[in-house]
Structures are given as C-alpha cells and as structure tokens.
Simulated scan of single mutants.
Amino acid sequence: MKHLTTLAALLAGVAFAGAAGACDTTLRASDTHPDGYPTVEAVKAMAQEVEAATNGRVCIEMFPSAQLGEEKDTIEQTQFGVIDLVRASFGTFNDIVPETQLFSLPYLFRSTEHMHDVLDGPIGAEVGEAFAQHDLIALAYYDGGSRSFYNAKHPINSIADLKGMKFRVIPNDVFVDMMSALGANATPMPYGEVYSAIQTGVIDGAENNWPSYDSSGHYEVAKYYTLDQHLMVPEVVAMSKKTWEGLSPEDQAAVKAAALKSTQIERDLWAAQEKASEEKVKAAGSEIVSEIDKAPFIEAMKPVYEKYVTTPEAKDLVQRIQDTQ
C-alpha cells in the first residue's frame, strides 16, 4: 500500500494547467491515454511550467483519452500543425521517422536505466534531429515500461520453457520473428481478445508491462510472469515544427526546459504505477520469476538482428546503444 500512496501523492502534486483564456497562445496536446496516466500527468506538469515561465503568454491544453484521434492520426495532424503537441510511442513513429524502428528490437536495452542513459545522451539528441526532418520537434522522452512474458501453463525460467508455447503478440513482423527465434509460436491478435484466448486455451500467454498485465486482468488467467524485459519502447513528446517556429526564442527555451523537467516526473509516476501493479498481482497469487539469465535469450536474437539491422548506419547505432554505459 505504501507505493499506492506514493503514486497518489505524485499525482496529487501534478496540477492541471488547461487552456487559460488570458493566454496569448494556447497549444493543443494529444494523448491516447486517460486522465491520471503517467504520460498525461507529465504533460500537464509541463503545461504548468510553461505557463509560469512565460508569465501566461503560452498555455497548453491537454486532450487525453484519444479525444483528438488515435496515435497515428494525431502524429500526422501534428506534422501539419493542426495539433501542436503529441505524446506517442516510438513504435507508432516507425513509418514516419525510420530511426525509431531500431528501438523495437528485442533486448536492445539491458535495463530501464540503460534506456534512460541512451535517450538522455548523444543518441537521444541524434534521434531528435531525425524527428526535425519530418516536421516534428522531439521535446522529451518518456518511459513506456518493459514488456515481459506471462502465461497460464508454467514458470518460464529459460528458453527451453518457451518451446512450442503460443503467445499473443502485437501484429508486428519483429515480434513474430522474436517468438520464432525463442522456439515459441506467435499469434497476432487484438489486445481485447487476449483474456478470453488465454482462458479458453487458444493461446498459452502474452507479453506486456506490469500495468497492462494488471489493468487487463490477464493476471487472473495467466499467473506466471517472467521479467525477461525483452522490449522497452520509449515514448516521445513531439511538437509541430510549424508551431515551434511560431514561438519566440524565449518561449521555445521555456517549452524545452519544461518538457525536460516533465521527463523525470513521468518516469517517477511510471515507476510508482509499476510498483503498485506488481504488488497487486503478487497479492492475487501471481508467481513472478525475477531472476533469469538473459544471455541465452539475447544470443537467440542474432537472426532477428541480421534481418532487421542491415545498413552500416543501423549497425553503428545499435552498437553505440549497446556500448552506452
């Protein structure tokens, strides 16, 4: 309960700064997640900082729960300047900003801390420059958690335990190839069908992060959860380049500073939400495998990397990510 209290305290400390009538400029921000979700609350905190730093000249109005559209649509609207700010997963940018594709590779990051170090350093800056080539300004990188395997059959302690099992995956070729490389069978299907599919034995399990494992109720039908953390896909807050260029240098600096400050707020909120979900599913009887040797899993990904990391530039980027300490 301590971590639940911590989450509530963090949320309580993030005040909403909606559109204010007195503002000279009101920017519209979109998120598919609902109110209270870490990414939404972090952008609200950013809004509060921006309004204070600009003495009310610039305000940000948050539109959560996909009010302005789903991620792909809102990204396109942001490119055209119809929407000013969008929070979306790197995965949704794959067809728009090619540099984001590599971040969907399995076991690219050793840990959450490693991912943060990569994004907060020179590589994150380079990726930001790639966004700018597509009419978007990358302002902040958020945490979207790590995906791990859960199933209804038995604990997964090694690759051998995955052999022949059927796992739901996002309809994505990388995920399908990842499961094949691990000796399991990938079953792409809509997220909403997973609970009943596990319950009826159509699939043995799925993979996702702590909050999704909890909120979906999947822990009720798949009590074995293994923290292999095979995928960590960052989130990004991006601004329309058209909107950015319409701001004064002073206001641009204020927006950038507020976005960077919101990064830690989002990460703290995410960590608290993860801990609350972990405690909930453990109390409900889920069996958690937290100590696992990832080396064989990573070794099994060689054919996947050979298939998707083909250019010298991509190989160099992957190597630099892996070398980041």
Rank of each mutant, 00 (worst) to 15 (best):
E245Q: 10
T243M: 06
Q322M: 13
T263S: 11
F175L: 14
F167G: 01
A295I: 02
D24P: 11
K307L: 06
G217Q: 06
I159S: 07
K282N: 06
D204Q: 05
L247E: 14
G183M: 02
S277G: 04
E49I: 07
E61P: 04
I156W: 00
G91Q: 11
I288K: 01
T112H: 15
A12M: 10
A253R: 09
E193K: 10
F93Y: 12
L139A: 01
M46V: 05
R87C: 13
A152E: 11
A184K: 02
Q319L: 09
I60C: 09
I292T: 03
V304A: 07
F63V: 04
S248T: 14
V289W: 00
Y191N: 14
Y305A: 07
A17E: 14
T74R: 04
N94C: 12
Y219S: 07
L231T: 13
N208V: 09
T311D: 12
V289F: 00
A42D: 08
R110W: 08
P64M: 05
G81A: 02
E287W: 00
S146Q: 13
A42P: 02
L7I: 05
E299G: 04
H114I: 00
A206Y: 06
S216A: 10
M301T: 03
A66L: 04
A206L: 01
R57Y: 05
V237D: 12
E41S: 15
T74A: 00
A257I: 00
N157P: 01
E76V: 12
A29H: 07
A140V: 09
L102F: 01
S277F: 04
V281S: 07
K163Q: 14
E291I: 00
I159C: 03
M178K: 10
T226F: 00
P296T: 01
W210S: 02
M178I: 06
E193H: 08
N172W: 12
V221L: 03
S215G: 09
V40R: 07
P249N: 13
S216P: 08
F131Q: 05
S111D: 08
A140N: 12
R147M: 14
S248Y: 03
T6A: 14
E129R: 15
H114M: 04
A132D: 14
E279W: 02
H116R: 15
A197K: 04
F103G: 05
V221E: 10
L7K: 04
F93E: 06
E299Y: 03
D268A: 13
K163H: 13
V304L: 12
E49R: 14
K261S: 06
N185S: 12
E99W: 05
A184D: 05
Q77I: 06
E291F: 01
E245D: 15
V281T: 02
T54Y: 01
F149A: 03
V304H: 09
E250A: 14
E299P: 03
K44T: 00
Q273G: 08
A42T: 02
A66M: 09
L227E: 09
K282H: 02
G183R: 03
I321W: 07
T78P: 08
Y305G: 03
L108M: 01
D268M: 10
V174F: 03
L68S: 06
V82M: 10
A42Q: 06
N151C: 00
V127W: 11
A259V: 08
S215A: 13
K302A: 15
R147N: 15
A206W: 09
G69F: 02
P303Q: 06
Q48F: 10
A29D: 10
H116G: 10
N94K: 09
T78R: 00
